[in-house]
Amino acid sequence: MSLPFSKTERVNLSTAEVLLACGDPEGLNIMGEMFAGFGVHTPRRCLTMADAQTSVQERILNLMVVDSALADGEGYDFISWLRRSEITPNCYAPVILITGHTRPSQIFRGRDAGASFVVRKPVAPLIMMQRIIWLLNDQRKFVTSPGYCGPDRRVKALGPPVGSKGRRHDDLSAQVGAASTPNLEQDEIDALFKPRAVI
């Protein structure tokens, strides 16, 4: 499921179908104002898990932003339900989970529920837009197994999305520089693959 703009264009969310779910009316209004600033005209606002489930069944969504606390349940449970619902294409849509609990166990719980991203509250608009752009460039495969359903959790192994600068000091650059040492000769390469007896 892709967002309705390409990575070469200026980000325009005016045509995106966005679901915002939060159990706190004031928190939901803050999220709504943030996305109005991004150009989203009429996001689906849901206070409860039941409302969010209904919205998923009624319209095709490009992005979902779900708080961990809904009025009648937890955002984690909604995301797990969504990923296994088989309501295509919505079950594959990007989901950003917002949580005030940033203990590793809670972050892992969001990831294991199938969230595309877990973001800590309070969320600054710049951080939210950065996550949306990251998801636009996200090339992870969707995984369905008995124990997990959602985007591939192995972000570290894949490095940052193409065209993005990595956060970690050991992320490799996509640009290949000039050789710093001479190339190996063929017999040196062959010797690397020949087993040798250890003395």
Rank of each mutant, 00 (worst) to 15 (best):
R111V: 02
Q175D: 11
G163K: 05
V65W: 01
P182Y: 07
P89H: 11
H169R: 14
G100M: 07
S68C: 15
K141R: 14
F5R: 03
R131E: 07
L47A: 12
L97V: 03
T15A: 13
D77R: 13
T102H: 04
I98G: 01
L172H: 06
R83N: 08
D170Y: 08
V118I: 09
I30P: 03
R45D: 07
L19N: 03
E17F: 06
V18A: 08
F78Q: 05
Q106Y: 04
T144V: 13
D171L: 02
T54R: 14
Q175Y: 09
V65N: 00
A197E: 13
L97Y: 01
K7C: 10
K7T: 08
Q175N: 11
Q186L: 08
I189D: 02
F5E: 03
Y92E: 10
V18N: 05
T15M: 11
P94C: 09
E17K: 14
R153A: 04
F5L: 11
N90Q: 06
Q53V: 14
D138R: 01
M34V: 14
G147R: 12
L172T: 06
V11K: 09
I79E: 01
G159Q: 01
T88P: 00
L19W: 03
T54Y: 12
T99Q: 02
L136N: 06
G150Q: 00
S105I: 14
S2R: 15
E86W: 05
M64T: 07
S116M: 05
G114T: 01
L184V: 09
W81G: 07
L82Q: 04
F142G: 10
D77C: 14
G32H: 04
G75R: 00
N62L: 05
Q57A: 15
A191E: 09
L70M: 09
I133N: 03
I199R: 06
F108M: 12
V11E: 09
F78R: 03
V123A: 06
A113V: 01
S14Q: 13
H101S: 06
E26D: 15
L192I: 13
R131Y: 10
P89W: 09
A21D: 07
I133L: 11
Q57C: 13
L192F: 11
S68Y: 07
F117Y: 09
T42Q: 12
R154M: 06
F78G: 04
E74C: 07
Y148C: 10
P104Y: 01
V198N: 03
K156V: 03
A113I: 02
R131T: 11
S85I: 12
I199P: 00
A50N: 13
R196V: 13
F5I: 05
L135I: 09
P125Q: 13
F117L: 12
T99H: 02
P25S: 15
A21Y: 06
G147I: 08
T144A: 12
M128R: 00
E86N: 15
Y148W: 12
S55L: 03
A52C: 08
K194A: 14
I132Q: 01
A191F: 06
R83W: 04
T48K: 10
D171G: 02
G73L: 05
T99E: 02
V198G: 01
A36W: 08
A50L: 13
D187V: 11
V119Q: 00
L19V: 14
D51C: 11
